[in-house]
């Protein structure tokens, strides 16, 4: 089913999308998207949506299940508090991606902005994953409590020191894992974390994720996997346990 978003306010567009799904549509193509917010917000179930254009903020917020493929760039707050499902952006995206995300996957082909993957949580089998193809800004993985973040540093013309993430990386992190295909300097890191070489089981995970990402983006996994990866994990799951006088 095709929905033309040209000239539609987000409220009307999203109502049409919900109506189409209620009517039984499982494959939707939304054309002419130009900044409409909240697309796929709170949507549930086995639905596949292709977005042509640039969707506005909060794409896929509170989403539980659907797959959204964006043929264009994303804006801010993609996958806000997302629960399940998958969002694939064939371009770059803005700030605060995957805030409080607790499940599902978010793949960005290009670069991403500030505060990506913050407050991510995981619980038992539910592990959210964000993969950024290019580089990310400051506060990446801030207050991260679970899940997996992976930055590949592709097409960034590697800065001479190989940094692909900004400052205040993983500040307040107390759960989950960050993988970077590049380097990180000590001054960039929050004091709650430490850098390690990936272990055997990490490699298996990286390989699996990179293959899925490459497959979605039409890239060569083999080439990407040749790069050097590092792992960042918290040193404590209770970073502020000793802050108080009882």
């Amino acid at each position: 089913m095709i929905i033309d978003a040209t000239g539609l306010h987000y409220k009307e567009l999203n109502e049409r999308i919900r109506k189409a799904i209620r009517g039984g549509a499982r494959k939707l193509k939304v054309l002419g998207v130009n900044g409409q917010r909240f697309i796929a917000d709170g949507l549930e179930g086995n639905v596949f949506i292709t977005v042509e254009g640039v969707p506005g903020n909060d794409l896929g917020a509170f989403m539980k299940g659907p797959t959204v493929v964006v043929r264009g760039n994303g804006q801010d707050h993609v996958a806000n508090t997302m629960d399940e499902g998958k969002i694939v952006v064939h371009g770059s995206a803005g700030d605060v991606l995957g805030y409080g995300m607790r499940g599902g996957k978010l793949f960005i082909k290009g670069d991403a902005g500030y505060r990506v993957g913050i407050h991510m949580k995981q619980y038992k089998g539910k592990v959210p994953v964000i993969i950024i193809g290019g580089k990310v800004g400051d506060f990446f993985g801030e207050y991260m409590a679970g899940g997996i973040l992976l930055v590949l540093g592709l097409n960034t013309g590697y800065s001479k020191n190989g940094q692909i993430a900004g400052n205040f990386l993983a500040t307040g992190m107390h759960g989950g894992t960050i993988f970077l295909r590049g380097k990180v300097e000590k001054y960039q890191l929050g004091r709650e974390v430490a850098v390690f070489e990936p272990e055997e089981k990490d490699w298996k995970l990286i390989e699996k994720l990179v293959k899925e990402f490459s497959n979605d983006m039409g890239l060569s996994a083999e080439k990407i996997l040749k790069g050097k990866f590092i792992k960042i994990v918290p040193v404590s799951h209770r970073p502020y346990g000793n802050l108080y006088a009882y």
């Binding site: 801010d76 707050h77 806000n80 605060v96 805030y99 607790r102 505060r115 913050i118 407050h119 949580k121 995981q122 619980y123 539910k126 506060f139 801030e142 207050y143 409590a145 679970g146 307040g172 107390h174 759960g175 799951h237 209770r238 970073p239 502020y240 346990g241």
Partner: peptide
């Protein structure tokens, strides 16, 4: 509490002052 908050048992539940969005 872990199940309801959807975080691992025994981990601190941190709600920072601002919503960072």
């Amino acid at each position: 509490v872990s199940r309801t908050r959807m975080i691992p048992v025994g981990s601190d539940a941190l709600s920072p002052a601002p919503h960072h969005d």
